[in-house]
Amino acid sequence: MKKFINDPADVVAEALTGLAAAHPELRVDLTERFITRAGAPRAGRVALVSGGGSGHEPLHGGFVGPGMLDAACPGEIFTSPVPDQIIAATRAVDGGAGVVHVVKNYTGDVMNFQLAAELAADEGIAVETVLVDDDVAVRDSTWTAGRRGTGATLLVEKIAGARAAEGADLAAVAAVGRAVNAASASFAYALSAGTTPAAGRPGFDLPDDEIEAGVGIHGEPGRRREKLRPARALVHDALDAILDAKEFPDRVIVLVNGLGATPLIELYLVYGEVAAVLADRGVTIARRLVGNYVTSLDMAGLSITLTAVDDEMLRLWDAPVNTPGLRWGA
């Protein structure tokens, strides 16, 4: 393992120290381990709190700021945050109008956010949970923990954050977040696994000519192993899986997301293939985003997310956002 770290046990704490130093517009509570935007809580506004294991940066801490999240709770690497963190962040940003928890559908995240939401209810804070489960690589959700939350998390946080910013109530903010998730589907490939500092070795080994299809964002292996093929063929298969899983009747937002160690030149190449396939299939791309947003440490790989949007979602997507990881119109 070669990484720019000091001690594997200190990586999350030291990264938060660095985040605080790099972004004075954020407040980083190093003791309770949560990140809030300056000026929290915003009186009378619904607040958005998300969180999850560390190692997916800029998700979630990099999406704290005007137009997106009010707070983020980073857990240990690939380990969900604990209820204490989540309730502390929830208290810190509650402006009296309630708090939306954006939770990726992983067993640990769901349990810890559920325990925190129960604590919040005891304290009289209204919490609505929006569960993100866009990864269509998980086929049979009856016999699994269900589809995983991946790239669509960014779209849920952006669009629900914009709705909260314009003063919508708790039910409306949660509703648009759920609608975005319901309208989204993602599929990912890995060329190689990421290495957690604690483990010191890659989460799985792949021969030089093999890839993992349908991989998750924690180094958990995917749907199947297969031989590496040209990007065009991989994109075709990924979009088949996505378009089979959900209806995309009209316009979409496309996210081509790097998983940490894939250069932008490959992400743009893949975006070009995605655009060509969608043109063939009669799907109109209304907006697109290409870059590293929901990562898996140093995994080489990428995910493709499609979200079917209406005018309202597009308006909210275009609304100003000013965070370390996503910024426009601000």
Partner: peptide, 12 residues
């Protein structure tokens, strides 16, 4: 354990 572990094993 609930306060310190995280993941699924802490709550369980």
């Amino acid at each position: 354990l609930i306060s310190k572990v995280g993941g699924a094993s802490g709550p369980l």
